[in-house]
Design a binder for these strands. Sequence first.
DNA 1: CTGAAAGCGCTAACAC
DNA 2: GTGTTAGCGCTTTCAG
Lengths: 335, 335
Amino acid sequence: MRTKSITIKDVAKKAGVSIATVSRYMNNPSSVKGKNRVKLEQIVKDLNYKPLLYARRLAGGKMNTYGLIIPGYEDIFYSFYALETIRGVAAALNKRGVDLHLHIAGSKDSYNSSLVEGIIFADVIENMEQLRRLARENVPIVVINKKIEDIDVSYVAIDNFKGGYDATEFLIQHGHRDIVHLAGDLRVQCAMERLEGYKAALAKAGLPYKEELVKIINFSDRETRIALEEMFELRKFPSSIFCCSDKVAREVLIFAEEKGIKIPDDLSIIGFDDNQLMSYGHYMLTTVRQPLIEMAEEGVKMLMEIVNGKMKKKCGVMLKPEVIVRDTVSFYKKS
Amino acid sequence: MRTKSITIKDVAKKAGVSIATVSRYMNNPSSVKGKNRVKLEQIVKDLNYKPLLYARRLAGGKMNTYGLIIPGYEDIFYSFYALETIRGVAAALNKRGVDLHLHIAGSKDSYNSSLVEGIIFADVIENMEQLRRLARENVPIVVINKKIEDIDVSYVAIDNFKGGYDATEFLIQHGHRDIVHLAGDLRVQCAMERLEGYKAALAKAGLPYKEELVKIINFSDRETRIALEEMFELRKFPSSIFCCSDKVAREVLIFAEEKGIKIPDDLSIIGFDDNQLMSYGHYMLTTVRQPLIEMAEEGVKMLMEIVNGKMKKKCGVMLKPEVIVRDTVSFYKKS
DNA sequence: CTGAAAGCGCTAACAC
DNA sequence: GTGTTAGCGCTTTCAG
């Protein structure tokens, strides 16, 4: 059984002062004077007294904990994006001495916000209603990795449209006209925006948009392979592929190796993420880097300002992705 | 300003019952009968009433949150081990509908356990005193990745001695007699045990232990490189290397590539971790897999039993690592 | 500067 | 089965 922890009363009794004085001392030592302070200093250390945060909170104090809510899609703990986000947020909070309360959103919106002072929403997919509810409850909130238009909530997102645009344009500049896009789940904002960027870059270059060149593979290795097999069987392999993630690009590389397709001579590939998983291998993958860590840092910074009342109105920040040129894209050669 | 949230009183008033009835309903709906229950069902949903967890806790209830404490060494968020642990614990808790309170231990033991019902300590390095303190406070605790002898606390660890032994023995079985060990920080239990396993395997095979073959490189790429350069300059390169982590092995592979050392013909390498970072590349790394995810799962399971009072006495579980045979170890060839 | 006292929202006896 | 009530440990007026 958990021993009764020492309380403010114990400290007060031992010091011969009232609990109010102890409370004041804990929250602002310099408000207690003379030998009372000296005594309290000593006793608090001796007893290793730590106020119960929930009691303090009930009486109106702080908990020093922020929440991070991530949508609970399948294999989330194997997703580069999710892990990188957790890492980024944890690091940003850690730097500020704040603890992290992690919640994976499920189907039933059970989240109880009473344990945190503010919440970072990492992406919002099926849990939009949850976001609405929490926003209604006036919990300080910052959404990261998604632009929020219709709710009065601050966000910091990445310009995925530009990412898709730049990746596609990069291929076009290398002479490719035959560009397949392996796209993610289009219900996910970033996947949709990357696709839009792809379309826009084609249009800009005066290239026709062909629906059959876009394969929705939902970020999945298995579906990627199916799509590749199909194109291969039908002898409809393109000269270049823009992949919605590096993990997908990896699957393409593996497939190419199996089939004896030369990279980048026979096929150019550009990924998305700059996942370190791909930074060492047969090929150095050309890709688009998203500043996920910076996004988390920025989000935490904003949230802290909101919690501390230093930011009153909604604010939206857009971060730019960047093409990382490595070895898997070459100039188009007519074969 | 955060709107006052709706409380048990609001619900009670609206339903025309006492707050005690509401409380009972929230904790055990079937204890409230007839139309009171029907009314409460409706009203709780309408108002979206959620009890404040800290108030509930203060009155003796549950928070449904477990803590995870990780020592705050440098670059922790880039460590395979730490990330894998966070992932494993988060997944195990998530499966059980419990939230995670993550704390990175700093130099000053500021952790306030009042927000959690139990704690997973992932490893214990410089925060041993913190563990002692929390154990003294009788918070339910399970330590993972470290054997705890002197405190009355349950643990689940990995048999790193066996891991080091098996890795070394594997090299010996392939005819190597000249085996360098790149060791981690020896203050970390797992690093020390792997080294002991290395020594034991040598002894078992009747090979002499030579101190100059062990390089303490502290899991660091930079120090690994320094050690390699030195061996290379002095023309003291061995026929095989046992690395304390896959990341270190990766650095060795990169170095070998630069110097034109053929893997595995000129040099055999075995790593430790089975880090997916290494599962795709020029070489398929032979390594020792640690069951980190299983360890986290087991730890959470044990903790939950302790919290629920189903386990009263200390218990220790050892998990076995396993050699994963791939392509970077070959039979020794006299050159 | 310090103490007394009134809650914060909830649970858990204890009555009825 | 349901209501009444006494706290849980802390902060915060309000006096002194």
